[in-house]
């Protein structure tokens, strides 16, 4: 049984801010469906009395002293901007 339809993948692409061609859409639907079918393996596993693992270090509330440290300069941090004006990030219009 298929887990994902073409429309499901179209929705995933939209949520992920990706645009797919017809050809990609068809390919990804097939591939992602096969991968989801494979991971279904976990559905039958008994996990009663277990807690989920979100991280493995066991560290809790890692803090540090709040102090000023030298870091890359503003120029360094802005040098990769695709588009800028007056050292500000310039983006396309947001409201129509």
């Amino acid at each position: 049984m298929a887990h994902l339809s073409r429309d499901d993948v179209l929705k995933l692409a939209r949520l992920s801010k990706l645009e797919l061609t017809e050809e990609q859409l068809e390919k990804y639907t097939k591939e992602i469906d096969a991968i989801v079918a494979y991971v279904e393996l976990l559905q039958a596993v008994d996990v009663s009395d277990l807690e989920p693992t979100n991280q493995v270090t066991g560290l809790v509330n890692v803090t540090r002293t709040d102090e000023v440290k030298e870091y890359a300069s503003q120029i360094e941090l802005l040098k990769n901007l695709p588009d800028s004006e007056n050292d500000q990030i310039k983006v396309k219009r947001m409201i129509g």
């Binding site: 499901d8 995933l12 949520l15 992920s16 992602i32 976990l42 559905q43 596993v45 996990v47 989920p52």
Partner: peptide
């Protein structure tokens, strides 16, 4: 995005985190 999306989170992501503990 699929395994984290509403309606599938428990079945996939949460389940995987539990299997991870096992």
């Amino acid at each position: 995005t699929y395994v984290l999306s509403s309606g599938y989170y428990d079945a996939y992501y949460q389940k995987a985190q539990l299997v991870r503990t096992k």
